[in-house]
Design a protein around this nucleic acid. Structure first.
Lengths: 96, 96
DNA sequence: TGCGTATTTAGCTATATGGCTATAAAATGA
DNA sequence: TCATTTTATAGCCATATAGCTAAATACGCA
């Protein structure tokens, strides 16, 4: 069983996926709207979305014909917190 | 020309390399000392070190027979800052 | 049911990655 | 110079990744 954290690192290691996440920061978007922002074929973006979903970084919900993706802010923030905990500079006040 | 940031993401996407960085947080180590901490063959660790070096996350210095690796704290911190800027939660005070 | 739209899945290719063993290279000391 | 130690490089293999096109699936509506 792969830890979520590991999947998040893999998901974040691709520039297109990071740009998808940044795009989703502006609000939920359908798969098609997302694909329109990138120079790749639509199935390519679909695959990126599934990687992001596997990492739990995004959540999808069907709405009629469309599938709407939105950021899973919680996982993203938890990942950032993990990073800071492990690699953040230790020059703060209450450092144990 | 690949941006450093991109290389950092790639470098960080591997668990062994992240553990090498965590190890180096405890202070500089020779390549051999680092390799001793992992269940992989020495050349495998050497390759991981070169990936970290390519991302500028570590710096090496020859000391006689040994090669001492140390964290490049600056790049790591700048990467974290970039991450926070792009993906950090915006629910802080002075948000523009 | 049948059609059109939206999206995913399948299947392919090319390249990248991470592991290994064997070998090379650099420094030291006899 | 030669042997020893330390580390890197070369070369190989298996798997993963990212891209594509073509086909399948899901839904809404006539």
């Amino acid at each position: 069983m792969v830890k979520v954290n590991e999947r998040v690192f893999k998901a974040m290691s691709d520039g297109t996926r990071r740009r998808i996440l940044e795009l989703l920061k502006t609000g939920p978007k359908t798969a098609g709207e997302i694909a329109d922002h990138f120079p790749h074929a639509q199935p390519t973006i679909s695959r990126h979305l599934s990687v992001l979903k596997y990492a739990d970084l995004v959540v999808d919900r069907r709405e009629g014909t469309h599938i709407v993706y939105r950021l899973n802010t919680t996982v993203l923030q938890e990942w950032l917190a993990w990073l800071l905990e492990h690699f953040g500079s230790d020059d703060r006040d209450g450092e144990a």
